[in-house]
């Protein structure tokens, strides 16, 4: 998802009886649905896993601005431009809420930036695909934000207080993101055949990467079982992917589009769609840094940070000077 394949360090989940008193008390609070807050005792693995998961999620929000930012200056109308700008600004805010949540676990903002810029930290695979036409912007809102919502809604009930609260704020805003995307596509499919073809082309390119956002099947993964025991993950990847497909296919039909999956078929018995397997080799390749836009995204992000240095330094100098003046005046 926005945080894909987060490792938990453990090799197996321990039962309550095997735990030290501290850890046992912690686990019992989690089991009872209580929130864990920053200064409270928590297992080291819980802290580390959360730092990985939340910072990866934050990086995804920040890097996720880039594919869409590509179209701000080329939006078809002034209204669409204002809407897209507001959406991309929201994503900056999402990144910020999440960085703050991660900081409560003892990692600094600079450390997290360092990890992103050095390539040590990951962000979602989805943002390494190019945005070739205006229809891609609609498709991102509809599919990518749609998939993000699937994952983020249950995270509002996450056991770690600051993460859960950040998710509540984020989820309030995501619905605008998805709707503005779908709305842009609704307009385009009612246009001339070339516009409708553009939307179909966008769906063809974004469908599979969107399904990959949920990550490979993790039913057998010890990391996933541990994360579920800690309540920092509520559903398996396959479960969320199924929900996403079931929700999205009728929407594609409404737009008069064809989902690019020959194996897609309604399964009456399970009350959901059967669908094909994403190309996991492609997924692992993108994760490893070899997607179509990995280098471009990281360079753009680093350049934005470096180009802003003089301004940040100016603000810091001003703050120090004013502080010194007010001390002198006392």
């Amino acid at each position: 998802m926005y945080a894909q394949m987060v490792k938990t360090d453990g090799t197996r989940v321990r039962s309550l009886d095997e735990m030290e008193p501290h850890e046992r008390a912690f686990q019992e609070r989690v089991d009872a649905g209580q929130k864990i807050e920053p200064k409270e005792w928590m297992p080291d693995g819980y802290r580390k896993t959360l730092v990985r998961q939340i910072s990866q999620h934050a990086h995804s929000e920040i890097v996720g601005q880039l594919p869409e930012g590509n179209w701000i200056s080329r939006a078809p109308t002034l209204e669409r431009k204002a809407i897209l700008l507001a959406k991309v600004q929201d994503e900056a805010g999402h990144g910020l809420y999440l960085y703050c949540a991660a900081e409560t676990l003892g990692i600094s903002r600079d450390e997290m930036y360092e990890q992103l810029h050095s390539g040590k930290a990951k962000y979602s695979s989805i943002f390494n695909y190019p945005t070739l036409t205006w229809a891609d912007i609609g498709a991102i809102g509809w599919l990518v934000d749609g998939a993000a919502i699937m994952n983020q809604v249950p995270l509002q009930r996450c056991s770690y207080g600051p993460y859960a609260r950040a998710m509540v704020r984020i989820c309030k805003e995501e619905s605008f993101h998805q709707r503005q995307g779908f709305d842009a596509l609704m307009r385009m499919v009612k246009g001339i055949p070339a516009q409708k073809a553009m939307v179909q082309d966008a769906l063809n390119r974004w469908w599979w990467p969107s399904l990959m956002m949920f990550g490979p099947s993790d039913d057998a993964s010890v990391h996933s079982v541990q994360s579920m025991a800690w309540k920092i993950k509520q559903n398996s990847n396959d479960e969320l992917r199924q929900k996403f497909v079931d929700q999205t296919v009728p929407q594609a039909e409404y737009l008069g589009l064809t989902v690019p999956d020959p194996d897609l078929k309604w399964n009456e018995e399970k009350g959901g769609y059967d669908f094909g397997e994403p190309d996991w080799e492609e997924f692992f390749n993108v994760i490893a840094g070899n997607g179509p836009c990995n280098a471009e995204r990281l360079n753009a992000r680093k350049q934005a940070w470096d180009d802003g240095a003089w301004f940040r330094d100016g603000l810091t100098a001003h703050a120090q000077k004013t502080a010194a003046h007010s001390v002198a005046a006392e």
Binding site: L96, Y97, C100, E103, R109, R165, A166, R169, R312, L315, T316, H318, A319, T322, A323
Partner: peptide, 8 residues
């Protein structure tokens, strides 16, 4: 409502 970094 949350927190943020700022120089002053």
């Amino acid at each position: 409502v949350g927190s943020l970094h700022a120089p002053d």
